[in-house]
Simulated scan of single mutants.
Amino acid sequence: MVCDRAVLSDVSQSIYMAGLLIGATLFGMLSDRIGRRPVFLISILIQAVFGLAVAFSPHIYVFMALRCVVGAAVSGIMVTVVSLEWVGVAYRTKALMNAHTAFAIGQMAVAGLSYGIRNWRLLEIAGSLDLISLVGAFQRRGFCASVI
C-alpha cells in the first residue's frame, strides 16, 4: 500500500501507538464507571470489527484511522485484564502471569501465521475472525449478560 511512500509505514505505526494511548485513557475511565467485564467484551468486539475492516481498507488513510481504533481496543483489553478485580487476591499473580504468557504466545503465533499467510489482508481477516469466535464463546457462557 505504501511502496512508493515508505514514510507512511512509520506514520501508520505512530498512529497505532496513539490509538493505544487514547484507548488506555478512554477505556480505563470507562472501566471504572461501568465495570471491567463490559469494557473487556466491548474492546474485544471493537477490535474484531475494526480489525476485519482494516483488511478491506481502500487506501492508507483509512487503514491508519482503522488501525488507530484497533490500537485503542487492544489497549482497552490490556487495561481491563491487568486490573483483574474479578480474580481473588490469592490468584491475581498467577492470573496476571497467565495473561502475559498468553499474550507472548499469541505474538509468536502471529509471527508463525504471517509466515504461512503472505497476504496481509488475509492475515488481518484471520486475526479478526478468532476474536469474533471468542465473543461467541463468551455469549454462550453467559459472559455477555453483564453488558446487556
Rank of each mutant, 00 (worst) to 15 (best):
Q13F: 14
Y16N: 10
Y16L: 11
M17F: 15
G19S: 02
G23V: 06
T25C: 08
F27M: 14
L30R: 01
S31G: 00
R33I: 13
I34S: 00
R37G: 02
V39F: 06
F40M: 14
F40S: 14
I46G: 00
Q47H: 03
A48F: 04
F50A: 03
L52S: 08
A53S: 05
V54W: 04
A55F: 06
S57I: 06
P58T: 09
H59T: 11
I60Y: 12
L66R: 09
L66P: 11
L66K: 11
C68S: 04
A72D: 10
V74C: 11
I77E: 13
T80I: 10
V81E: 09
L84N: 05
G88C: 00
G88E: 08
G88H: 04
Y91V: 09
Y91W: 12
Y91G: 06
Y91A: 15
R92S: 03
R92A: 02
A95L: 03
L96I: 09
A99T: 11
A99V: 12
A102P: 07
A104P: 03
A104S: 14
G106I: 05
G106C: 08
G106T: 13
A109F: 12
A111T: 13
L113N: 12
L113P: 10
S114R: 10
Y115K: 08
G116H: 02
W120Y: 13
R121C: 02
R121S: 06
A126V: 00
G127T: 09
S128R: 08
L129A: 07
D130P: 01
D130I: 15
S133I: 15
L134K: 02
V135E: 05
G136H: 01
Q139F: 10
Q139D: 02
Q139P: 00
R140F: 12
R141L: 13
F143W: 00
C144H: 03
